[in-house]
Design a binder for these strands. Structure first.
Lengths: 209, 209
DNA sequence: CGAGTGACGATATTGTCAATTCGTCACAAA
DNA sequence: TTTGTGACGAATTGACAATATCGTCACTCG
């Protein structure tokens, strides 16, 4: 046991077999391509197996269910969104301005997905409706990004510091659902950007010192 | 044309024939009973006709579609909710307290409907997803109730008065969708009351002078 | 004229049954 | 031991005919 041996990574729920395995990456890759093109529901595990050149039984050595594959792909896609959110939140300039830009960008990314990646959007709907773990994880990570941004604002004196940070960031994450939840986004797509701006305004007023 | 003759009422969309007609009331009454028991989708127009003792063709003398009947019942049910909201908003005491009570009560009413009037809840889902006019009307009326409450708070000095009232009440109505939209309520039913409290907190911070 | 309806076409839904899909198990090969 | 699979049962989906539903029209009756 040398000092350079990392601890074994904790596998996400639904993962089987060794966490770092080429076949798993191939499955996720094939799954992402198929889900983007055909949608989650229309893609069969057999399609994925065929695309890789395996049997469906072998797929189940790596994921315990079709849903687990969906969760893995969903996590991957959402982590790209979060990377962009993190980048915006980490920009220089007033925290309030960054928060506005974050709200607008999140709305734009979601609309882009709705209009140009409809199958991925529909998969997001399924993930929310069926309460996939990847959605809960995403919410937590978004909240962490907001916490960091708010802490910046507090440090610079832009934002109030009385309310517990956890409560503030949780409430803001929650409020963001009113324009980011995929089903609401679908219903209110024509107003999504103005909704985002309105809510950013309300949130910034709530953060005012 | 005497001075005591009221103007003819403007009929809601989808209504046919004379606005004030006993058959229309019977249809709405039968429809509400059936939708509560069987749901909107499972209830046929023929069911309603049979319950009243008419042909389906006669039902269409009063409503131009099954959806219009649904909208009428939906409006009726939502107006009862709004009556309760209005009563809370009109209570005496600090405006902030009333706003908290309003958020909590709205969450409770919605959860009550989800758990004990599931068919009505499902109909609300349909109404939102298909963007029924009755939902848009409800949103507007809720916003008006909030405007009145906020104006009270401004008059008493509890709330800031810089932000245009329309913008404030619209943003709050929007934020309320995060715990009141029927599909979100369904997903997050275990946290609906704490969500409502969190959001009331955020909204009240946004209203602080 | 107001109150009311039978008949009907277009569309949607349901019922039936075959085919497919999901996920497991016992096993094989290197 | 790791990599991989054919066979299989339970559940779901697809195909298609049968039936139901939505909504309209031309008409009747008092």
């Amino acid at each position: 046991m040398t000092d350079s041996t990392p601890l074994p990574p904790v596998s996400p729920p639904g993962h089987r077999g060794p966490p770092d395995h080429e076949r798993r990456q191939q499955i996720i890759q094939a799954a992402e391509a198929h889900f983007r093109h055909y949608g989650f529901g229309k893609t069969t595990v057999a399609d994925l197996a065929r695309a890789i050149g395996l049997s469906t039984a072998y797929i189940y050595k790596f994921f315990d269910s079709k849903r687990a594959i969906g969760e893995a792909v969903c996590s991957l896609v959402l982590s790209r969104v979060l990377d962009r959110a993190r980048a915006i939140a980490a920009e220089s300039g007033p925290a309030a301005q960054r928060l506005r830009r974050l709200f607008t960008a999140m709305a734009e990314i979601s609309l882009e997905q709705y209009f140009h990646e409809r199958r991925l959007h529909d998969m997001a709907v399924t993930a929310c409706t069926d309460r996939w773990q990847s959605v809960a994880d995403y919410d937590q990570r978004l909240q962490a990004i907001l916490s960091t941004l708010i802490r910046d604002g507090r440090d610079s004196g832009e934002f109030e510091g009385r309310t517990p940070l956890e409560e503030t960031s949780l409430a803001i994450t929650l409020a963001m659902a009113s324009f980011l939840h995929p089903l609401i986004l679908e219903e209110r797509r024509d107003q999504a950007l103005s909704d985002a701006a309105l809510l950013a305004g309300l949130v910034l007023r709530s953060l005012a010192p």
